[in-house]
């Protein structure tokens, strides 16, 4: 499988934020997107996910076969918001994610074990602290399988131990042949990751 981005250009509110961004990632490869605030990291991820239209260039997924025809069908997108309902319990949130997305991978309990929060399953998501919420959202990446992970500031609000645990999860995903694109300004602790620096002037 190969995620190919060619000459991508994106805008926000009609104003161009970047153009001519190109990269290609094969199985087991990770791209870390860095750059200052407003350089278009989030916009880039959303365009790659297919949540925003690109103003130029193309994003495609080669070799996904019938099961993963495009990036959107093959990706987990972890945005700045956690996509969890505060009124529902953590277990309800995760099992909804699993049932709605299909391709179950880990059960909700196992996924919570992976982010070291096994005791919160029965609590409403709204009771959790910011860091805990983020970790539950990370557990959401594990309940159903997707080869491509698109992560927008995944470690925001995490403490050091959780960050380390999360890098281990990402490495495991890469070893299994997954693809990760992560926008961040803290090092994620992944050796051999490609790096893309988004300039303040919108150029790569």
């Amino acid at each position: 499988m190969r995620l190919v981005v060619e000459n991508l250009a994106g805008d926000r509110g009609g104003e161009p934020v970047f153009d001519r961004v190109s990269f290609a990632l094969s199985d087991g490869e990770c791209l870390v997107v860095t750059g200052e605030n407003g350089s278009g990291k989030s916009t880039l991820l959303r365009i790659v996910a297919g949540l925003l239209p690109a103003s130029g260039g193309s994003v495609r997924l080669d070799g996904g076969g019938e099961e993963w025809p495009d990036v959107m069908s093959a990706c987990h997108y972890l945005g700045d918001r956690n996509a969890m309902k505060p009124a529902l319990t953590v277990a309800e949130n995760l099992s909804f994610r699993q049932e709605f997305l299909g391709r179950p991978f880990l059960s909700a309990e196992e996924a919570l074990e992976e982010v070291a929060l096994p005791s919160v399953a029965s609590l409403p998501f709204g009771y959790l602290s910011t860091g805990q919420r983020r970790r539950v959202a990370i557990a959401g990446l594990l309940v159903s399988f997707r080869p491509v992970w698109l992560l927008d500031e995944p470690t925001a609000g995490l403490d050091l131990g959780s960050e380390r645990r999360f890098s281990a999860l990402m490495r495991a995903h890469l070893e299994e042949g997954g693809i990760i694109v992560a926008a961040t300004h803290v090092p994620l602790g992944i050796e051999g990751a490609k790096e893309l620096v988004m300039g303040g002037d919108g150029r790569e």
Binding site: G50, M72, Y77, G79, N82, K85, F100, L101
Partner: peptide, 15 residues
């Protein structure tokens, strides 16, 4: 939309 679930619904609905 406010809690980001809309993205999940759109991504999930690609199938």
């Amino acid at each position: 939309r406010e809690d980001g679930s809309l993205d999940l619904l759109i991504i999930g609905s690609s199938r």
